[in-house]
């Protein structure tokens, strides 16, 4: 495995430590740009090993209510794809080591222009992309140009991705593989420990890339259980829901919001770090 780039370096370092990674998700600009930047800046110290940042979109078809609401809050507060890249630059100003992955849907990128987006994302310090509505059948849209630009394209594998299809899904995947542990949308349901363990074993037969597991991880205990068997546990909706609890009736951030989200991330990190101990 190559150790070039922040994502491989981070996974290599954690492997040496003998533990899994905690990957956290927040939507860019939720609930506003300034709060969002402060939240992101504090994540590494709170124990996030990799950071996923959602690119807000009006029609997030694969997301459940928590992340849908986060997207709409961010858009209402004026967030855009250009604003998302600005946030990444702001984060990078204080942290050059933590991998940053942008996650979202294709249309805002397509509208921005793929070549221009990749140039600007690379310059801002983006390491990887997860674009939900670009399966391998549409690889030449963004996946191949991203790889050529030196940005990882992280593919989702799901319970419906059978052994016959898995090689096609993994073919141009880089950085890590993200296993969606349920057939469903974000923030709903959870897979059993046994199902997750079997899925990770199956994926490892097909790839040497680190395997991250997400969807349905809502607590430090669930994060710990996943961290026992996978290379990373991804937590999204639970963190976004925690953020939403810190909003007032107008949807504005209250005083304790940032600290409360970081507090929750510290608990998740403790779960992940203690998992194999």
């Amino acid at each position: 495995m190559s150790t070039e780039g922040r994502i491989p370096r981070r996974f290599a370092a954690l492997k040496a430590e003998g533990r899994a990674a905690l990957v956290t998700f927040l939507t860019a600009g939720d609930p506003d740009a300034a709060t969002s930047l402060a939240l992101l800046r504090g994540l590494p110290a709170a124990g996030a090993d990799l950071i996923e940042i959602g690119m807000p979109f009006t029609d997030p078809m694969a997301d459940g209510p928590a992340i849908q609401a986060a997207s709409l809050r961010a858009l209402a507060a004026g967030m855009s794809l250009a604003g998302t890249l600005e946030l990444v630059r702001g984060f990078r100003a204080g942290d050059d080591a933590t991998p940053v992955i942008l996650m979202g849907y294709y249309n805002p990128i397509y509208r921005y222009g793929v070549a221009r987006f990749l140039t600007d994302a690379k310059a801002a310090g983006v390491d990887g992309l997860i674009v939900v509505d670009l399966p391998p059948e549409e690889d030449e849209e963004l996946c191949l140009p991203a790889l050529a630009a030196g940005i990882s394209f992280i593919r989702l594998a799901t319970p419906t991705t059978d052994d016959a299809r898995l090689p096609a899904v993994l073919r141009h995947t880089s950085g890590f593989v993200y296993y969606v542990s349920i057939t469903g949308i974000t923030g709903t349901g959870a897979a059993s420990d046994q199902a997750i363990s079997e899925a990770v074993t199956r994926l490892r037969r097909h790839t040497d890339l680190p395997v991250a597991v997400g969807f349905g991880i809502t607590s430090p205990e669930r994060a710990a259980a996943v961290a026992k068997v996978a290379d990373a546990a991804v937590v999204g909706s639970a963190i976004v829901s925690r953020l939403a609890k810190g909003l007032n009736a107008e949807g504005k951030a209250t005083a304790g919001l940032i600290e409360d989200v970081h507090h929750f991330v510290r608990a998740l990190a403790a779960g992940v770090r203690g998992a194999r101990g």
Binding site: A62, V132, D133, P135, R155, L156, T158, T160, G184
Partner: peptide, 20 residues
């Protein structure tokens, strides 16, 4: 055969749906 009408059409769906 890939569902494209010129640049239009295609199969822009989440992986979970792709096998379906």
């Amino acid at each position: 055969e890939r569902g494209h009408f010129g640049i239009y059409g295609g199969r822009f769906v989440a992986e979970t749906l792709m096998p379906l």
